[in-house]
Simulated scan of single mutants.
Amino acid sequence: MSDPGVRVAAVDCGTNSIRLLIADLVDGQLVEVDRRMTIVRLGQGVDSTGAFAPEALARVFKAAEDFAAVIQSKAVSRLRFVATSAARDVSNRDAFAAGIEERLGVRPEIITGTEEAELSFRGATTSLDLPAPYLVADIGGGSTELVLGDATGVIAAESLDIGSVRLTERHVTTDPTSEPELAAITQDIDTLLAGTKVPLADARALIAVAGTATTVAAVALNLPEYDRDAVHHARLSTTQLRDTTTWLTTSTRAARAAVHSIHPGRVDVIGAGALILQRLVDRLPVDTLTVSEHDILDGVALSLG
């Protein structure tokens, strides 16, 4: 008799978005039931204030209520909620945790950057056949996780305090972004990449995950609207990445907003995110990158087995 599996739900709450995955876990593999995402900008102002803004908490609590209704309707047996970069840095994390527990019935786990990296690696590398060791890059709103590993697991991992929201809020005041602002963002990125303990030169392949990478891929592929199937496991050349990054960092907000494959909640921060990806690729001995829709969310779901 085959394993009937167990239905699990994973919630990942980051600096820019909150996401839900409901799946049946069968023989160590995920069979997707529902996947959704809401832009909540939880990290609004965190870099400067050190606290969650009341309006940001209101947005994330509303999304949690919506997710709770979906979870209940799908007869989920196990639920895990993880929170990442923004929640590590704030003074009022208890208010956030209490609000989530009230709505979803579980206490959110404020995971470390290392655990975030390992979960991203597990989720991203399932069903991929690439030369090892491979580097998984998870570019978020508040941080970027770098994980080098192979089929046996993680070799080195680190979480860097560079993300699309964090760098945009720190440096960008003009539209389009000015050259001095781009230079300041680049300096922040290069400083942290230069000091990472992850041996980037050892990577033989790059897997880029999460909203920045998938959005960059959608733009690079000239998709008329966001298409998850077209983006998942898409391979971009370094030339495609550079051309796309140049456009995203020098275009006006209105021009980016007119591109239907860019989620409205990413329009103002995608330039900084793309620049993180570009500066990372510049340091790697690779000429292509693979984009994956599977990431930390899938890793969290797999951890419930």
Rank of each mutant, 00 (worst) to 15 (best):
L119S: 01
V82H: 00
L20Y: 04
F67Y: 07
A53Y: 12
L42T: 02
I262K: 06
I155H: 05
E55R: 10
S85H: 07
A56I: 04
P224A: 11
T245C: 12
A23H: 03
D227N: 11
A75V: 12
V219D: 01
S48T: 14
A213S: 08
R166K: 14
S2I: 15
T15M: 02
R279L: 07
V286G: 08
T250F: 07
V60W: 02
L57V: 09
V172S: 09
D268W: 06
E145P: 02
A58Q: 12
P54R: 13
L241A: 06
E179A: 15
P180M: 13
F67S: 01
N222K: 14
A272S: 10
T15F: 00
A117F: 01
T38P: 11
S48I: 12
T144H: 01
A257C: 13
G153R: 08
D129M: 13
I262A: 06
R228K: 15
R204A: 09
D34S: 13
P133I: 07
A132M: 11
A56Y: 01
E293C: 06
V267H: 08
L302T: 03
L25S: 04
N222V: 11
R36M: 15
T177L: 09
A201S: 15
P108M: 05
F52V: 03
V286P: 05
R36Q: 15
V90A: 03
T177A: 12
L277H: 03
D287S: 15
R204M: 12
V40H: 01
T84W: 00
T112K: 00
E293I: 05
L182Q: 09
P285L: 12
T174G: 13
A64C: 13
D188M: 05
A210L: 03
R235G: 14
F81I: 10
L104E: 07
F52C: 03
T252W: 13
A117T: 00
H263W: 08
A230K: 08
V209D: 00
V259E: 12
S2R: 15
V106N: 03
L304I: 10
N16Q: 11
L277N: 03
A254G: 14
V70H: 08
G50I: 06
R7Y: 05
I18H: 00
A151C: 15
A230Q: 09
V281T: 10
A217V: 06
A272L: 04
A137W: 02
E181R: 04
A272H: 00
